[in-house]
Design a protein around this nucleic acid. Structure first.
Lengths: 164, 164
DNA sequence: TATTGTTATACTCTATAACTATA
DNA sequence: TATAGTTATAGAGTATAACAATA
């Protein structure tokens, strides 16, 4: 989690040349890349707060959703789906299993592999997080406006898929 | 930097229940928050590549720009402007000074404070990074389309400023 | 030989708290 | 007492490489 999104200089520096003046972001202010980053960080932070009230975090939400929607998924498949190395996933899955949200079963026909599934507790936690996510979405929707929403999301998808 | 954005399961798992099937992202696929994150990560990664060719990274670019545009800014002001704790900024500034891109001067009237300014080398590096950023922006522009750009950026700004 | 998942290790970025030197 | 910046420390999230078990 991050601190505030401070864009005003608040205290001190009364003798600095920039003292009192608002910060000049220069070209950053108009660039897509920079604003994309600022918006994502603010959105992520807001959802982190919602999640924290449930004792979870945004990353767990995506993992739980992927397991719920793809019952029996393996850790390697899950890591590919979330774009992280399998070794990054080991502690995450371990945590979810330890807390009783996810269940792992060896596959008989290939005993190297695990199948992941949500437990009842996992489904319950996911339901709570999904509710928090819907609330967060409504907040975002209000800022976007209904007319522009579809186009906005389409552009985001295009960037995610095609930027190089 | 991240691995690929893999959304297809590639190898193995031939016996898992999800084997061969494309991954179902469920509600994630349509939610703004999730797509914002994916787009930002992809954009950030792309710009990381451009920056790496100059021997820098996206974070350095923002820091150099802020110093260039706010000559004599203090570290506390800079940390407020970039939304990070001042202690997070110490190693960043230290690195920029060590590499001769930024110059620090004690303020006579308040000897606790430093004023930060770019050196000639810093201005040169910033110019190179700005050129890389413009190229990255053109790539983003192509994906967004000229008609939607202003509205798209306005929405990002609104999210950054107002989401809670 | 190749694959699944784990371990060891390391790097980046961030924060909080305690500190110093100044004010 | 308060502020500017540093240090010590920690945590989250990521990666690569080597490994054991299994295929």
């Amino acid at each position: 989690m991050r601190k505030g999104k401070g864009t005003k200089v608040e205290g001190g520096g009364r003798n600095g040349e920039a003292a009192g003046k608002p910060i000049d972001f220069g070209p950053l202010a108009t660039w897509v890349g920079f604003n994309l980053r600022m918006a994502q960080e603010a959105s992520f932070e807001a959802f982190s707060h919602h999640s924290a009230a449930i004792g979870e975090n945004p990353g767990r939400f995506a993992t739980l959703t992927l397991i719920a929607r793809n019952a029996g998924i393996s850790q390697t498949e899950l890591s590919a789906a979330s774009g992280r190395d399998k070794s990054s996933l080991t502690p995450v899955v371990e945590d979810l299993v330890r807390r009783g949200l996810v269940e792992r079963k060896r596959v008989d026909s290939d005993r190297r592999t695990y199948r992941l599934n949500l437990t009842a507790a996992g489904r319950k936690t996911l339901a709570l997080m999904t509710r928090a996510a819907r609330k967060h979405e409504r907040n975002l929707d209000r800022l976007i406006g209904p007319r522009d929403k579809k186009r906005f999301v389409d552009i985001l998808k295009r960037i995610a898929a095609e930027i190089e």
